[in-house]
């Protein structure tokens, strides 16, 4: 019975992440905003560091693919970039949770570079037209700012706290 309620609670947490991701995606796609930060990455990064159990890789991939399909971008490449970046942050989560917001921000900016750079690289490797480097760099910069806003909104306003202790995190990645 306890296992069942635990599974239901975890399902609800995953649904909460999926809803937050979908909301971020919808805001990102709203017309008239011009160049936008990668809000989906911001939300996924927040979850991957602070609530990794509620953000499974399959859910992140599904959201990434949904974005690729809806915004007309290279299908699969954007999702792969998002998945690689969030998995990197998930692996560093135990360390990052103990560090300051500034250090976390630097790691998130590096991961955002992977999220935007991997699709750019894949598209370039297949000899298709790649976006301007300035556009990609602007996207990364906007994402770093967007991540700060996301942390403020989710942690400051919605009071979403980390659901793992440092010891849990070490256990999850076999560092005992």
């Amino acid at each position: 019975m306890g296992g069942l309620s635990g599974a239901v609670a975890r399902g609800a947490q995953v649904a909460g992440f999926a809803f937050a991701g979908w909301l971020a995606l919808s805001i990102e796609l709203a017309p008239g905003l011009g160049a936008t930060p990668d809000l989906l990455f911001c939300v996924a990064a927040f979850w991957a560091i602070r609530r990794p159990r509620s953000a499974p890789a399959a859910a992140i991939l599904a959201l990434g693919l949904a974005r690729d399909l809806l915004d007309g971008g290279p299908v699969g490449a954007g999702a792969l970039g998002l998945l690689a970046a969030t998995e990197l942050l998930r692996a560093q989560g135990a360390t990052l949770r103990r560090r300051s917001l500034l250090v976390e921000g630097v790691h998130v900016a590096a991961a955002a570079t992977i999220a935007a750079g991997l699709p750019w690289l894949l598209v370039g490797l297949t000899l298709a037209d790649t976006p301007l480097v300035a556009d990609v760099a602007r996207r990364i910069g906007l994402t770093a700012v967007g991540w700060l806003a996301t942390v403020f909104a989710l942690r400051g306003l919605l009071r979403l706290r980390s659901d793992v202790t440092p010891a849990d995190g070490d256990q999850m990645f076999g560092k005992r």
Binding site: L61, L65, L83, L122
Partner: peptide, 30 residues
Amino acid sequence: GLGALTLVCLGLFVLWRGDNPRLEALRMAL
């Protein structure tokens, strides 16, 4: 699992690069 998800992404990317009409149909259905 992560390897399988990566392969799925790369497979879809190859289909996108090849202008697969089914991918466009999937895009519009979504």
